Simulated scan of single mutants.
Amino acid sequence: MTSQPTTVPTPAAATAPPDYATPIPTRWVGPLRITGNAAAGEVHVPLATYETPLWPSVARGARLSRLIEDGIKVTLVDERMTRSVLLEAPDAETAYTAALAIHARTTELREVTRRSSRFAELLTVRHEITGPLLFVRFEFSTGDASGHNMATLAADHLLTHLLTHIPDISYGSISGNYCTDKKATAINGILGRGKNATAEIHIPQSLVTGRLRTTAAKIARLNVHKNLIGTLLAGGIRSANAHYANMLLALYLATGQDAANIVEGSQGVTYADDRDGDLYFSCTLPNLIVGTIGNGKTLPSVDDALTRLGCREDRPSGDNTRRLAAITAATVLCGELSLMAAQTNPGELMQAHTRIERSTGSPA
């Protein structure tokens, strides 16, 4: 008996779902009072989030900043965008010889970088050798761009140049994960990626008790027990904070940033000190990756947000993005301070979430 071939029905042609916009609820909070070497004045900030308690939490820190003459002081201490390339050699000795040759050509490599972009400048070259593998980490200044594409383009030019002029090495990858992009790593926390900024505030005792309903001693103690020891026990990498990622994501989405960069951006250290009843509180963020030009920045809502933030002004290259980084760091401090204060009081955090989310129609 001859078996009949099985007929498989042809599925209907797949159709792509229609493109549609799903706006994330956004609210302007503030103003925050900021001083420092990259921004000064009072500014409202846009926060795009589904977590509605974030708005009043940041607003509480913002109100506090306006009651202090210097507000939140932000010091920008460094800036660099990175891209690492992977080279392969026959053995470690050859890889090491190649690394020495690369460092000897730094001036030459800076010229190659300038030919790749009007704004990219090669700052530093670092390397790491594992067996026959040579990882080369290029660090660039990138003007007002966050610099991902600019750094990759420059690295591509540099890689081609190295393969042409350095003997006995071959191509491994344009990205060797020694950058490190969108991953929480020790190297980013140590060397920085993007803008490295510290936001700090000095709060008199009367405001700590009156506005935050707690004490400097309680916040300092909780910071050690929760942010430092708790994170250590959890295996955190170069990080000790309560929720930097919340503020970063909300501001990144509202200002057209690459939201995935909150992975390394949320690395950072909160410091709290009881100074005779007054509170010193700071947030150090070594990996703020923001830009005011580039992909996403011409969308109407983003352009409006950057304009209202004062980051569309006629300033020297890089200054608008430095301002945005300072505003971002200050925003993180506002939310971090508010949450830490709330967590010193039993029940306060959950009561606030329940009250605010029910009032907006969100499930409690």
Score class of each variant (00 low, 15 high):
280 Y>H: 12
186 A>D: 06
335 G>E: 12
71 G>V: 02
269 V>N: 04
267 Q>M: 13
48 A>M: 08
277 G>E: 12
108 E>I: 02
45 V>I: 14
274 D>G: 06
105 R>K: 14
184 A>S: 01
237 I>T: 15
234 A>I: 02
329 A>H: 09
314 D>I: 03
298 T>Q: 12
176 G>Y: 00
298 T>H: 10
270 T>D: 08
218 K>L: 14
303 D>R: 11
108 E>Q: 15
74 V>M: 09
122 L>E: 09
359 S>F: 04
230 G>C: 04
239 S>P: 01
261 N>H: 15
323 R>F: 02
211 R>V: 03
162 L>I: 14
107 T>Y: 12
195 K>C: 10
242 A>T: 15
206 S>K: 05
219 I>C: 09
137 R>L: 08
197 A>P: 00
80 R>Y: 03
227 N>K: 06
243 H>V: 07
76 L>E: 01
305 A>Y: 00
32 L>Y: 08
95 A>M: 05
262 I>S: 03
61 G>R: 02
227 N>Q: 13
12 A>Q: 13
211 R>A: 06
251 L>W: 00
282 S>N: 03
185 T>V: 06
269 V>E: 05
189 G>T: 07
259 A>Y: 11
331 T>Y: 03
323 R>G: 03
303 D>G: 03
86 L>K: 10
150 M>T: 15
333 L>V: 06
216 A>N: 03
294 G>T: 12
39 A>I: 08
250 A>Y: 02
59 A>R: 05
63 R>I: 01
219 I>M: 15
62 A>H: 04
335 G>P: 05
247 M>G: 14
298 T>A: 13
359 S>P: 02
86 L>N: 01
125 V>G: 07
169 I>K: 05
178 Y>N: 02
194 G>V: 11
301 S>Q: 04
78 D>T: 11
349 L>F: 13
216 A>W: 06
96 Y>D: 14
107 T>A: 14
311 C>V: 12
246 N>V: 09
92 A>S: 14
56 P>N: 08
79 E>N: 14
134 L>K: 02
269 V>D: 02
232 L>G: 12
55 W>R: 04
252 Y>K: 01
171 Y>G: 00
152 T>L: 11
346 P>R: 10
95 A>G: 10
276 D>T: 02
305 A>H: 05
41 G>N: 05
224 V>C: 03
350 M>W: 10
215 T>I: 12
317 S>R: 14
3 S>E: 13
55 W>M: 04
295 N>F: 07
10 T>W: 00
266 S>F: 06
150 M>D: 07
208 V>T: 09
275 R>A: 09
225 H>Y: 08
63 R>A: 13
224 V>L: 12
120 A>C: 08
261 N>I: 04
315 R>N: 03
105 R>C: 08
195 K>P: 00
5 P>D: 07
354 T>M: 10
328 T>V: 07
21 A>F: 05
345 N>Y: 01
222 L>F: 13
292 T>N: 07
260 A>W: 08
63 R>N: 10
290 V>W: 08
14 A>Y: 03
316 P>Y: 09
328 T>S: 15
329 A>I: 05
184 A>L: 00
166 I>G: 11
308 R>S: 11
76 L>C: 01
165 H>W: 07
60 R>S: 06
193 R>T: 07
120 A>N: 08
343 Q>D: 14
195 K>G: 01
355 R>T: 13
282 S>W: 14
179 C>G: 13
8 V>L: 15
153 L>K: 05
169 I>S: 01
21 A>S: 11
294 G>W: 03
72 I>N: 02
358 R>C: 10
263 V>C: 05
